[in-house]
C-alpha cells in the first residue's frame, strides 16, 4: 500500500531525536520517516548533485535511496546513526549511477590537472568565495571531486572512501591531497 503525504502540520515528531524517528520508522511509522526525509533529504540532494556533477539524476537517486532506506531500516542497529547511514546509501546509489553512466571509467584518464579558472581576477571583486568554491569544485577532476565530497560532505574515513570507490588507500590519499591543494591554491588566488 502506498504511503500518503499528510498535510504538512507542525508535529511534535518534527523536534524528535534521530534515534526516536529511526526507531519509529523501523516499526513502520510513515510519519516519522517523513520527518527524516525532510530533515536529511536536502543534504542528500546537495550531496548527490555534487557526486554526480549535475542535478539531472538527483531526484531519481535520492528517491531510490529513501525507498531502499525504508525497506532496510530493520538492519540499522543504532537509530542515532541514521544520518550517516542515509549518507552511505545515497553515496552508493550515486556511485552506482556513475558506474552505469561510464562503465569503463579510468582513474588515470580522469585525473587530469584541474583547468585553471579563467581570469580569476576579473571575477574576484563580484564573486563571493562561496561561488568561487562552487566553480572550482565543479572544475575538479571527477575522481578528486568524488573523494572530496565523500570526505567533506558524507564524512567518510579514508578507508571507507577506498572501499566505496574500490581504490587503493594510497590512491584515495593522493586524490584528496590533490583536491585540497587545488582548492587551497585557487583560494590563494582569490585573496
Amino acid at each position: 500500500m502506498p504511503g500518503r503525504v499528510r498535510e504538512q502540520v507542525a508535529s511534535p515528531l518534527d523536534a524528535a531525536a534521530d534515534q526516536m524517528l529511526a526507531d519509529r520508522a523501523r516499526d513502520g511509522d510513515l510519519r516519522a520517516f517523513e520527518v527524516l526525509v525532510r530533515r536529511y533529504g536536502p543534504l542528500m540532494r546537495v550531496y548527490a548533485t555534487r557526486v554526480l556533477g549535475s542535478n539531472d539524476e538527483t531526484d531519481d537517486v535520492v528517491q531510490e535511496s529513501f525507498i531502499t532506506a525504508w525497506q532496510h531500516l530493520g538492519t540499522l542497529e543504532d537509530g542515532s546513526a541514521v544520518k550517516s547511514w542515509l549518507m552511505r546509501i545515497v553515496s552508493r546509489k550515486s556511485i552506482d549511477r556513475l558506474r552505469t553512466r561510464r562503465p569503463h571509467v579510468n582513474i588515470d584518464e580522469t585525473d587530469a590537472p584541474a583547468p585553471e579558472s579563467s581570469a580569476p581576477h576579473a571575477r574576484v571583486e563580484v564573486e563571493s568565495q562561496t561561488e568561487a568554491l562552487a566553480r572550482v569544485l565543479a572544475a575538479l577532476p571527477e575522481d578528486q571531486r568524488r573523494c572530496w565530497t565523500l570526505r567533506e560532505l558524507a564524512e567518510y574515513s579514508y578507508g571507507d572512501i577506498a572501499a566505496e570507490l574500490n581504490l587503493p588507500l594510497s590512491t584515495v590519499r593522493g586524490l584528496l591531497a590533490r583536491a585540497r591543494k587545488t582548492l587551497l591554491r585557487q583560494m590563494e588566488d582569490w585573496r
Binding site: R4, V5, G28, L30, E34, V37, Q63, I67, Q71, L73
Partner: peptide, 13 residues
Amino acid sequence: WVSSILNNITLEA
C-alpha cells in the same frame, strides 16, 4: 519530491 518518495514506499516492508 517528498510526495514522490512517500508515494512509492509501502507499509508491507
